[in-house]
Amino acid sequence: MPDERSPADIIAESAGPKAAVATDRSPSAEPDELSPRLANARDMIVTEHVDKWFGDFQALDDVTLNIKEEEIVVILGPSGSGKSTYIRCLNRLEEHDAGRIVIDGIELNEDVRAMQAIRSEVGMVFQQFNLFPHLSVLSNITLGPQKVRHVPKLEAEALAMQLLERVGIPEQADKFPAQLSGGQQQRVAIARALAMQPKIMLFDEPTSALDPEMIKEVLDVMQELAESGMTMIVVTHEMGFAREVADRLVFFDEGALVEQGTPEHFFTNPREERTKLFLSQIL
């Protein structure tokens, strides 16, 4: 069922009741001051009162969160808090059960065209890389552009090589994923997602499966990406990255959005007891 309102309406509407939403929820959900550079940015992702159930288990509990264009949001929370489920709902790897999700003016609903449109706008990087093991590094990256966007082969390969240069491993183009280290594989995965020229990048614990010495090379790529103006949502436990790169930190617990604010707010003066407890355990 296509939404009859125009994207602009949806955005205007979703931007409007933000203050109201904050008042009828716990005070911690009140949006804290944003980076000045985002003051006039439009909302890229709008999620309102999103619920998600796995059988009897409520994975997301009334999550309302709007994300600006070019904003870098880092999502924190203990395991099982719903942070991965939240970003997986954003490109419909999971279907939300209630509430509204609007990505760049397109509402996610039963309409398969909306899902297709979203998926080519939203890139995703997984904890376990999920490269295609039967395809070369180059083919992993060119597959999407060639098959979904119908980009000519030579053009797709040129783009793929550019992206491999950008993530620092052009010399690995003809190898297979299994021949690469974890850090290299994750950088290929980032290149694969970027090849679809997405407006939004989702990172689901991108460094959690990596050996410690490989974490930095992946974080460096992500930082460079953030500086290039990509809208990014990152689920991670890398506090250094969160402090340096994020515009906003969001804390999830038991499926609910507990607290959000700037890195400074989080690391100096968290408001909620649950946030304090979590940060004391992780820092």
Binding site: L93, R119, F126, N130, G144, M196
Partner: peptide, 26 residues
């Protein structure tokens, strides 16, 4: 691994492309 299906979806492949390009060859 389930991740293969998810990665294929995330890249935007159709169900048929997912089956013939990713799942069946493996």
């Amino acid at each position: 691994p389930r991740g293969q299906t998810e990665a294929a979806n995330a890249v935007g492949l159709s169900a048929y492309q997912r089956m013939t390009l990713i799942i069946l060859p493996q």
